[in-house]
Amino acid sequence: MNSILTSIYAFSVQRLPYITLIVTFMGVALRVMRWRSSPPDPEKIKIDPVESVKYVILDVVLFRKTWKTDKAMWLALFLFHGSVAGIVFGHLRGFHIWSITLFEAFGHAFAEFMVHTLPIYVGYVFIITQVYFLARRVMLENKQLTSMPNDYIALVLLLMKSIAGQGMRLVAPEAVPTALYSVVFIPRFVVLHLETIPNSHWFHIHIILTQLFIMYVPFSKFIHIITGVITPAIYGSRRKQIDR
């Protein structure tokens, strides 16, 4: 590997995580400041925890409103968010939040399927649904919707990082060490433990794109990862006040 690439890869593991943390926190802080500097609402909506949770479950978890409007989009949204949840959960094993023993109670073959086989299928679903979103956006552009540049940048970045992640699974690993292979991003806080040493290119492209994506979240429509729970919760409480 040439030295420039080696330095970039080293930078992506040793330095970029700190930059990612700082930029992401600053981005979120800027967003919050932008909202805080706007005038408060004249009407105080009394938050009703039961109604708010009900609306979050119905509208954020089950996509009730999308079901009413567009069944194909509902399926895509459901599969996309389901695969996000699965992928995030899967990654947590690498950070030693859980281990394969979680599934061993159902037999070793099942546990193997859950941690090694299923993620590959989930990865495909993740990529296919993103391609669908991108194609839908392009087809409806300037008809039913108008996008802002960040709508596309965020989607393309996510798609690229997903393809790199899937590539990493499909390409043969560089080695299978006897002990776990650890990648230290932030000593003692963010340490990834891998069973194999993945293909270096796919791995580093994946982690670079992932970090770029995380940094971009507060500046893009992916801010809805946070606010997409808040607005339906407020709406749920509002409806409680309205409905007779």
Binding site: R31, R34, W35, R36, S38, P39, P40, D41, P42, M73, L145, T146, S147, M148, D151, K221, I223, H224, T227, G228, I230, T231, I234
Partner: peptide
């Protein structure tokens, strides 16, 4: 308002 800016920022233009 605060909530409205949050809504505009959240809108995915879907």
């Amino acid at each position: 308002t605060r909530r409205q800016v949050m809504e505009l920022d959240t809108c995915a233009h879907c």
